[in-house]
Design a protein around this nucleic acid. Structure first.
Length: 156
DNA sequence: GCCAACGTTGGC
DNA sequence: GCCAACGTTGGC
């Protein structure tokens, strides 16, 4: 079995929150329209990988819980539903541009580990999300960083 | 709601 | 293939 990897996925809680995921158990991570994020979902995410569920544009923004990959990359069919919010006229069914994965609920933190706390922890200095201007909605996270954040989330 | 940072598009 | 204009993200 391949090595387990770790990721961080951003979502605005107004669109989808960790509470929604807890209720739904699993969800498809559709609508990503960024090539870097697409590549990660299509090529790199494997079943069982750990995911930090990050709430962006929230109060406060931060990691609100943990999820895991339950289905590996497959074409995002919303891309060719005309009129759909995620419709992309340039994508072709034979050769899909956009991919999604499915994630499953693991746990909700008692309190959100806020971006401020992430930035304040020197051990997380190299974590992508703490860097200024980091807008990528699907990011790789190191095993150490993943475990530090989970520990922070459970502690409270 | 503002606006800086970033990604993408399109004219040349 | 450059780069200005534009649209989007996301912290504040």
């Amino acid at each position: 079995m391949a090595k387990k990897d770790y990721w961080l996925m951003k979502c605005e809680p107004a669109a989808y929150s960790i509470d929604d995921l807890e209720k739904d158990k699993t969800t498809s991570w559709e609508g990503v329209r960024n090539y870097q994020a697409r590549n990660i979902m299509r090529d790199e995410m494997k079943i069982g990988d750990g995911v930090l569920f990050y709430a962006s544009n929230a109060d406060p923004s931060g990691v609100s819980g943990v999820a895991k990959i339950v289905k590996e990359g497959y074409p995002d069919d919303k891309a060719w539903k005309k009129g759909h919010h995620y419709f992309d006229a340039k994508t072709d069914k034979q050769n899909p541009t956009w991919f999604q994965v499915d994630i499953g609920f693991v746990e909700t933190f008692n309190d959100v580990v806020s971006l401020e706390e992430l930035k304040a922890n020197p051990a997380l200095r190299d974590m992508m999300v703490t860097k200024r201007g980091s807008r990528l909605s699907v990011q790789p996270v190191s095993k150490q960083d993943f475990e530090i954040v989970v520990t922070m989330g459970r502690k409270k």
